[in-house]
Design a protein around this nucleic acid. Structure first.
Length: 394
RNA sequence: GUGGGUGUAGCUCAAUUGGUUAGAGCACGAGACUGUGGAUCUCGUGGCUGCGGGUUCGAGCCCCGUCACUCACCCCA
């Protein structure tokens, strides 16, 4: 029989990694909330049609990377898909729950697992976690953003057409499927051709132009550091106007920590009013890779405050009573359950990094006291048992 | 889906040109005159060398296949 292991591209998060996860999750929540975003949670799977419509069929995600299934043979039961991204589900929920009617402008954030059927590599997993924000319903200047994109697409095609034979095989395919991707190519030959590609900002309509200029002006005035990348391309069809990424050099080929942009037409495309929106998502696993490479000190794992050791196993019930009492008073406490030697119990307490050890033996029972040892300083004190248990102090 | 790299103990790695019972460090467990941790020392547990075939008197090592992991393409966080 074949050994059953964790599925390809997924991994267990073991107890020792949990503090880092908590740290990262807590941090994004705190920051998002500081910026006025509220958390929203949507299902892990959605009807497949949602992603087909939102992401667009030029994307590989829709073509071959979705976990799609149909449990029911009944006709009319629609196929569902494990969510490969979260913008579309959130827009869906925003509309379905009439959020724009309650308050047109909504600032929402999320944090959770996503699924894409891909070949794993550094920073790329089949199940991964993203935290992101969506600012939905900001007044849209632009109903004609697509026109700019179409115009630029035509310009690009016109420029690249004569060079087509010199482009790499991938790019020749891209020319038909998605010209913009050619700008992103890493083949030396293609890079050379791309160098002289017409700049996109010459092809913006007045509206987009104004939007772009305003954005740049705001960024400059707030002292925000950024770079303009005329070769930046993002995969989803729903993006309009501004797109952006944050990358980190430690991440290898998959170096985007964060990516996002405007999607001013998506709400309307999913059946809602014509309202603009912006959002971005942060890859949590990639963030953690970057944190590890930056040698950031890991948060301390939780540890028991008290470990109770017994001289003889016959005192175990007593020890059990003590840890139960302490736990009820909100103090983390633990003990040995396997009748180990005193030395071994202390070793265990040490390994757990327990702050204090209480020892119980004949002496303590007759005197009705507890021996309390501070495991950092090594000093031992004797306390009255009933006093300590009714009002523990260290 | 395509290509490269790597698979030996829980982890990191050894094992002369193919040659006996596959080793070490760390980790884990027990102990060092028995009511006390960390340091040191002693002892111990632990491997169908990823799996399946082949070549050979003999394979951890060579050949083929397969699986897994990994990096990269593709695509994307």
């Amino acid at each position: 029989m074949k050994e059953i292991k964790v599925p390809t591209g997924t991994s267990d998060i073991l107890p020792e990694q949990i503090p880092l996860w908590r740290y990262v999750e807590d941090t994004v929540r705190t920051v998002f909330e500081r910026y006025g975003y509220s958390e929203i949670r949507t299902p892990i799977f959605e009807y497949t049609a949602l992603f087909n419509r939102a992401i667009g069929d030029t994307s590989d995600i829709v073509e071959k990377e979705m976990y799609t299934f149909n449990k029911s043979e009944t006709p009319g039961e629609d196929s569902v898909t494990l969510r490969p991204e979260l913008t579309a589900p959130i827009v869906r929920s925003y509309l379905e729950n009439n959020l724009p009617k309650i308050k047109q402008f909504q600032k929402l954030y999320y944090c959770g697992p996503l699924f894409r059927y891909e070949r794993p590599q550094k920073g790329r997993r089949r199940q991964f976690t993203q935290a992101g924000v969506e600012a939905l319903g900001s007044t849209s200047y632009l109903l004609d953003a697509d026109k700019c994109r179409d115009a630029y697409r035509d310009t690009l095609k016109k420029y690249l057409e004569p060079h087509l034979p010199q482009l790499c095989g991938n790019c020749q395919r891209r020319f038909q499927r998605n010209v913009f991707r050619i700008l992103d190519c890493k083949t030396p030959n293609c890079i050379a051709i791309n160098k002289d590609v017409p700049a996109f900002d010459k092809y913006l309509c007045a509206d987009c132009r104004a939007h772009f200029d305003n954005l740049i002006k705001t960024l400059d005035e707030s002292g925000m550091k950024y770079g303009l990348d005329k070769h930046l391309v993002r995969g989803f069809d729903y993006y309009t106007k501004t797109i952006f990424e944050i990358t980190h050099s430690s991440l290898g080929a998959q170096d985007a920590l964060c990516g996002g942009g405007r999607y001013d037409d998506l709400i309307a495309e999913l059946g809602g009013p014509s309202l603009g929106a912006v959002g971005f998502a942060i890859g949590l696993e990639r963030t953690m890779l970057a944190l590890e490479s930056a040698d950031i000190k890991m948060p301390e794992p939780p540890r028991p405050k008290v470990f109770v050791a017994v001289i003889d196993q016959k005192f175990s019930p007593k020890a059990f009573h003590i840890i139960t009492t302490l736990r009820q008073k909100g103090i983390s406490a633990d003990m040995d359950y396997e009748g180990k030697s005193v030395k071994s119990q202390f070793r265990t307490a040490d390994k757990l990094k327990s702050e204090f050890v209480i020892t119980i033996g004949e002496d303590e029972i007759t005197k009705q006291t507890l021996k309390l040892k501070n495991m950092v300083s090594g000093t031992e004190t004797e306390v009255n048992e009933s006093e300590f248990l009714s009002k523990p102090s260290f």
